[in-house]
Computed example of a mutant assay.
Amino acid sequence: MRELDDIDRHILLELQRDGRLTNQELADRVGLSPSPCLRRVRQLQDDGIITGFSAEVAPVAVGLPITAWVSLTLSSHAAEVVDEVEARLRGIPEVIEAYLLAGDDDYLARVAVASFDEYENLMRRELRAIPSIAAIKTTFAFGITKPRSPLPLP
């Protein structure tokens, strides 16, 4: 991993705040001319620091008002079981994020669905069908206290 300088950090902060900035707008905000700014952005992409650009979509606006955090505990940690669990999680469209954990639970998945009935169907159809799941715990989010924000770059 390469060392980031203050300009790199500023570029990353601005792009995390608004990934739709034009190169000229970004250059103006970080105090560079457009050509060096574009070179830096491309270098950050080439270095794997910027991994992509995407739109943030309001779940409620597209009919997905229910967010569930699902903790999964495995009964076996054999390599083939772990591979199968991870492949299955990646294949479920309603699972919008999934993390491997250290601690009591093995995975934490964020799920977006239209209704509690839809969540129940997802649980019965997909989650319970994953091999070697010993326990599933679900917590429903009723509001967002702090929306996703830029990474606090050192």
Results as ranks from 00 to 15, higher is better:
residue 1 M to C: 10
residue 3 E to A: 08
residue 4 L to A: 01
residue 6 D to R: 06
residue 7 I to T: 15
residue 7 I to E: 01
residue 10 H to Y: 00
residue 11 I to K: 03
residue 13 L to G: 08
residue 14 E to G: 03
residue 16 Q to N: 05
residue 16 Q to K: 02
residue 23 N to M: 15
residue 24 Q to Y: 11
residue 25 E to Q: 15
residue 25 E to I: 02
residue 26 L to P: 06
residue 28 D to M: 03
residue 30 V to T: 07
residue 31 G to I: 01
residue 32 L to P: 04
residue 33 S to Q: 09
residue 39 R to M: 13
residue 41 V to A: 08
residue 41 V to R: 02
residue 42 R to P: 00
residue 44 L to I: 04
residue 45 Q to Y: 02
residue 45 Q to S: 10
residue 46 D to Q: 14
residue 47 D to H: 05
residue 48 G to Q: 08
residue 49 I to Y: 03
residue 50 I to M: 07
residue 50 I to A: 11
residue 51 T to W: 01
residue 52 G to A: 07
residue 53 F to H: 09
residue 54 S to D: 12
residue 64 L to V: 05
residue 65 P to A: 11
residue 67 T to V: 08
residue 68 A to H: 01
residue 68 A to C: 04
residue 70 V to M: 02
residue 74 L to H: 02
residue 74 L to V: 07
residue 77 H to W: 06
residue 80 E to V: 05
residue 81 V to C: 07
residue 83 D to R: 15
residue 83 D to Y: 08
residue 83 D to N: 13
residue 84 E to L: 10
residue 87 A to V: 07
residue 87 A to G: 12
residue 89 L to P: 04
residue 90 R to M: 07
residue 92 I to Q: 06
residue 92 I to N: 10
residue 93 P to E: 11
residue 93 P to A: 12
residue 94 E to M: 08
residue 96 I to K: 12
residue 97 E to L: 10
residue 99 Y to E: 09
residue 100 L to P: 10
residue 101 L to I: 03
residue 103 G to A: 04
residue 104 D to C: 00
residue 104 D to R: 02
residue 104 D to K: 03
residue 104 D to A: 06
residue 106 D to C: 03
residue 110 R to Y: 01
residue 110 R to L: 05
residue 112 A to G: 03
residue 112 A to L: 09
residue 113 V to W: 00
residue 117 D to I: 04
residue 119 Y to R: 09
residue 120 E to N: 12
residue 121 N to I: 11
residue 123 M to N: 15
residue 123 M to E: 11
residue 124 R to K: 15
residue 126 E to N: 12
residue 127 L to Q: 08
residue 128 R to I: 03
residue 129 A to I: 06
residue 130 I to R: 06
residue 131 P to K: 05
residue 132 S to L: 03
residue 132 S to N: 13
residue 133 I to R: 00
residue 133 I to L: 12
residue 133 I to A: 02
residue 138 T to C: 06
residue 140 F to P: 09
residue 140 F to Y: 14
residue 141 A to D: 09
residue 141 A to E: 11
residue 142 F to H: 10
residue 143 G to N: 15
residue 144 I to R: 12
residue 146 K to A: 13
residue 149 S to V: 10
residue 150 P to Y: 05
residue 150 P to F: 09
residue 154 P to R: 01
